[in-house]
Design a protein around this nucleic acid. Sequence first.
DNA 1: ACATTACTTCATCAAACGTTGGAATGAGTT
DNA 2: AACTCATTCCAACGTTTGATGAAGTAATGT
Lengths: 122, 122
Amino acid sequence: MNWGNFILTTGIQLKDSAATARVSEAVIEKTARLFEAAGEVARLRLLVLLSQGELSVTQIAAATDENLSTISQRLRVLRTEELITSRRDGKHIFYRLADNHVAELISNALNHVSEHLLELYG
Amino acid sequence: MNWGNFILTTGIQLKDSAATARVSEAVIEKTARLFEAAGEVARLRLLVLLSQGELSVTQIAAATDENLSTISQRLRVLRTEELITSRRDGKHIFYRLADNHVAELISNALNHVSEHLLELYG
DNA sequence: ACATTACTTCATCAAACGTTGGAATGAGTT
DNA sequence: AACTCATTCCAACGTTTGATGAAGTAATGT
């Protein structure tokens, strides 16, 4: 695999299923921002909500009983990190998860935590 | 909306092969804290470093050229969210990723971002 | 027992973050 | 064009977070 401009200076390596690949600083930084964006209860709740299907800001506001402005700000953070995308349909802008990778990532994390909690309180 | 009994219907299969699973508020909160803990460059770098194998605090300090106290604080955050575990061996305390789930979660996220960056610049 | 190594915790402070209301913008409708 | 309705931007505020050095703890060495 050609890592182009993203060759690490730190020598940190990641176990890949087949080969061992280098993890570039750029990848780490972007991944950290992705985690950070998903790392707030309100935003993660939003992601979980959107994992069901697309919704407009108004619908989200109705569903969550929160300030429209607040929701918009959260959506902006998630959109900036490319966790969600939007499309306009008439007056409304509909948001949804960016792709299946994102959906799986969230699903995996939730499952991991669920299992962990079940072990403790099951 | 009743978040406590929120039903996730993503079409993504959650662990027990059911197409629909409940995502409790507790799970979302813990998952958010997990993401948050991993959502800082320095801490994620630490996780990536530890994905290679266990290291003592001194070894980490040597590898990263950072304040011992700073590293200890970062490790505490990661330990609190159960992303890493530690064991003492004589004078040294060795840290490593908590389990394979954690390793996979990080690996998946890094791979996802890598692919995304390659699409843009590769 | 005392010193030393290897960490961890504490206290402080600046920087970053999330929420909020109101103003501003954008997109469709009449 | 004027008028909505939907959404985003802005500025202010309070809260949280991370880095730092100093003090504290635990295990080993002399």
